[in-house]
Design a protein around this nucleic acid. Structure first.
Length: 468
RNA sequence: GGAGAGAUGGCCGAGUGGUCGAAGGCGCUCCCCUGCUAAGGGAGUAUAGGCUCAAAAAGCUUAUCGAGGGUUCGAAUCCCUCUCUCUCCGCCA
């Protein structure tokens, strides 16, 4: 019927608990401010009041119409004359239609606000203004000291003849890589190794997932509608001319659909496997006993990185295409912070096994991603840059994504309840490769291969210029 | 790509304009009965939103039968568009 008015659809895509927003808007605004997000309190308040009025009025009219229609049905089934009720209810039509349109407009306006709001930070997250306020939690490993001049991964890879960035640029453009021989194999070995550790030691279920994904899924995890520019969009070819025919015969304009401005048939290249893995539970009510769900997948990731031109332009640190082994957990709300610690530990395990020094940072309120309530970044030591660089980001999203996805479980009372979702890189493969090249470089230009990877490398102990 | 058939609650499945949020069955929950088990009897069993309310409880109400739109006083049912599933043909790794 009038689906756009349906509460389920409408509030299903809001990100914060709408009740919380209504009852404690000031509190929410204060928390959001710590994320450098200015919540339009006044506008929200006004729209909310308007919504309340119109919705009450609309539903009242609907109730009257429904009652009248029922009477008509009754009368007719008894063979009585219903024309007086019919005439009475006929007047309702215009009024109702108008009210419904108004309600829809208000809902849409409200929706625009709601869709932009990031998640609220957890109380344990340090307040801060920039990444400078992130807090170090722990450090592992000691950066090696070199008795020769350290080189960066580009220089190492190119002099080995295994990394060819100019050719990648010829093939595709800036921010793509071409690796060959032992380096390509090392890259593959890393992904295999990570997957094996997570499936065999950490209890994750390996998944093979689509790399092209729809708008519903991206909305579910929070990439849409706000971060559309960061995505590669694949338009569906519709060659037929049929499309030029009018699609809607009714009066309702297309734009009255609150979702349509970013809803389309197009597919998008996944920016991370978090999207397909987390969306596994979208529109599902899972059994309590099945929790926690733990998935891992090795996938390419595609990012247009529209906002970061000029950062990390050299080398493989920031690419349009890179590989990642992703960890996703779908958990009981009471378990999610414990799960965050575990998941972060799972990612750390990879670095420990590889022997790469790292530190763990708690991101401050200003530096967290859109969907997260709390995030640990794991930063690996890069000797040439003489600093730690992000190699993994592990987040608890609490019910933020679950609310958008309508991902629920049946709780102890048998009632549906929103799940909590977590994700983290375990790890970014390209950056791990960079870290290996730089940390394990030798004075003769070769690179030692970490012990745990040698089985995956056919026993090879080091990459040399001759490495095939 | 061509031709056809479908999409209903946790599951199966009925329902072609009115009292249908939806028969019946299965499952599940509670109660009764039986010494235990099995069988049997009874009751209940969708989700989301809004309003009243300090809150809870409760009450009233709206929406939802793949999605969106239309017709109608009234749509699971009629019309249009889309998505997905199945069968056959073609093509293909």
């Amino acid at each position: 019927m009038h689906g756009a008015l349906s509460g389920t659809r409408f509030f299903g895509v809001s990100m914060l608990d709408i009740q919380l927003l209504r009852t404690h808007p000031d509190h929410v605004a204060r928390l959001l401010a710590t994320r450098n997000y200015v919540f339009p309190l006044t506008e929200f308040g006004e729209l909310e009041a308007e919504r309340k009025n119109i919705q009450t009025y609309t539903e009242e009219l609907q109730a009257r119409r429904n009652a009248a229609s029922r009477q008509i049905g009754n009368a007719k089934s008894r063979g009585e004359d219903a024309s007086s009720i019919l005439a009475e209810v006929a007047q309702l039509g215009d009024e109702l239609r108008q009210a419904e349109n108004q309600l829809q407009q208000t809902q849409t306006a409200l929706q625009h606000i709601l869709l932009q709001i990031p998640n609220l930070p957890h109380s344990s997250v340090p307040e801060g203004k920039s990444e400078a306020d992130n807090r170090e939690v722990r450090r592992w490993g000691t950066p090696r000291s070199f008795d020769f001049t350290v080189r960066d991964h580009v220089s190492i890879g190119e002099s080995l003849g295994l990394l060819d960035l100019p050719t990648a640029t010829k093939l595709s453009g800036a921010r793509f890589s071409l690796m060959t021989g032992g380096l390509a194999r090392l890259h593959r070995a890393l992904a295999q190794f990570m997957l094996d550790v997570h499936t065999q030691e950490h209890g994750y279920t390996e998944a093979y997932v689509p790399y092209l994904i729809n708008a519903d899924s991206l909305r579910g995890t929070g990439q849409l509608p706000k971060f559309k520019d960061d995505l590669f969009e694949i338009p569906r070819k519709k060659m037929g001319m049929v499309e030029s025919l009018p699609r809607n015969e009714g009066h309702a304009p297309l734009s009255s659909n609150p979702r349509c401005e970013y809803e389309d048939d197009d597919l998008y290249l996944i920016p991370t496997a978090e999207v397909p893995l987390t969306n596994i539970v979208r529109d599902r009510i899972v059994a309590l006993e099945s929790l926690p769900l733990k998935f891992t997948a090795h996938t390419p990731c595609f990012r247009s990185e529209a906002g970061s031109y000029g950062r990390d332009t050299r080398g493989m640190i920031r690419q349009h295409q890179f590989e990642k082994v992703e960890l996703v957990q779908i958990v009981h709300p009471q378990q999610s912070y414990k799960a965050l610690e575990e998941l972060t530990g799972h990612a750390e395990t990879i670095l420990r096994k590889l022997g790469l020094p790292y530190r763990v940072m708690t991101l401050c309120t200003a530096d967290m991603g859109f969907a997260a309530t709390k995030t640990y970044d794991i930063e690996v030591w890069l000797p040439e840059q003489n600093t730690y660089r992000e190699i993994s980001s592990c987040s608890n999203c609490e019910a933020f994504q679950a609310r958008r996805m309508q991902a629920r479980f049946r709780n102890e009372k048998g009632k549906p309840e929103l799940l909590h979702t977590l994700n983290g890189s375990g790890l970014a493969v390209g950056r791990t490769l960079v870290a290996i090249l730089e940390n394990f470089q030798n004075s003769d230009g070769s690179v030692s291969i970490p012990e745990v990877l040698r089985d995956y490398m056919g026993g090879l102990g080091r990459l040399t210029a001759q490495t095939e």
